[in-house]
Nucleic acid binder design. Structure first.
Lengths: 175, 175
DNA sequence: TCGTTCACAGTTCGTTCCGTACTATACGTC
DNA sequence: GACGTATAGTACGGAACGAACTGTGAACGA
């Protein structure tokens, strides 16, 4: 029984727990990669989270770490029972904080910027995103244990399509 | 000429500058209120920003503060030329960081939570949001100098409609 | 007219988040 | 076996954040 510091679990914590739950176990780097093909699109985190958060979680007793043998001797994390419980309890609550949107572009328009150029690159960006997600989707489709990523990728694709529709509605192409 | 510390301007800084530009001048509390009816929907900030950020901006020479006479003797902020310039320069750049979406609910689903209840309250939330924004829109429509708020409110309404469509598409009501 | 209450206004503070910039390791290539 | 480079990982400071708290003034009843 190791004594574990009491830490506060934030949404970022649960994100890491959920990812590790899927992976079974993994290093920070693997976490980072998993983030990129799964939650990044609806729950953005900087890559340092994949290094910092597991350490925090381990100190709280939610993860165990074992050292890899060869090579870089990286730490491989996996959930403890306590971690699994905490994750399940959180996921089971049917409440969630409302979605947040951060749109620097709209902020610029609000500040008096011209919307035209911003919109143009925004459209391109959404199109690129859709392609990217469809690529990831192809890669993930027949891999075992990635059903959840698949679902979130699909949601992502629909989301970006809707955003394109929105842009068209609020600012019909002039020319 | 006061000496002013060199500070880094973040999107939050520009948010405050833009608001003050619209208001002409204002106290932190007025800023806070303005935030709630304007940028909060596409650029969320905690209310403490309305108190902390103006102080930071003033220390950097982008705002001036004068003391109110009676009552609480609150500080009333307004833009300096430097502040106006910085704001204009930022707004004129046609680039913006990509939009970010934070969806705790999707994170929960990803973590194995049931989507049903989450979706239900989400739909209700979007509907409420639409009503709220429409209310604000009515209030703002014929007020002078609120054209920008109006525009962003319209975008907000379309946004929430699109989100409702998205929910319907990815999770058609079962019963 | 004093005290109580309550909504409004503002502050404090510790933690978490975040991005930048940097360092280190493995592995291929010449 | 040095060199380059893609991959992997770290350090760190400042900003963002939210919880909890404090202060202020106006309304009201006693």
């Amino acid at each position: 029984m190791m004594k574990s510091k009491s830490i506060r679990l934030t949404p970022n914590s649960y994100a890491v727990l959920a990812l590790l739950d899927q992976l079974g176990e993994g290093t920070s780097y693997e976490l980072k990669q998993a983030i990129e093909v799964s939650i990044q699109n609806f729950w953005p985190v900087p890559h340092t989270t994949a290094y910092e958060e597991p350490a925090r979680l381990a100190s709280g007793g939610y993860l165990t770490a074992r050292q890899e043998e060869g090579g870089r001797r990286r730490r491989v994390y996996s959930l403890t029972d306590s971690g699994r419980e905490a994750l399940a309890a959180w996921a089971a609550e049917p409440t969630a904080s409302p979605p947040q949107l951060r749109e620097e572009a709209v902020l610029k328009v609000f500040a008096g910027g011209a919307s035209g150029p911003l919109l143009k690159s925004r459209v391109a960006w959404h199109l690129g995103k859709i392609e990217e997600l469809e690529g990831l989707l192809r890669g993930v489709r027949d891999a075992e244990g990635w059903e959840r990523s698949e679902r979130t990728l699909r949601v992502g694709i629909v989301y970006h399509r809707k955003m394109l529709e929105m842009i068209e509605e609020v600012a019909p192409p002039e020319d």
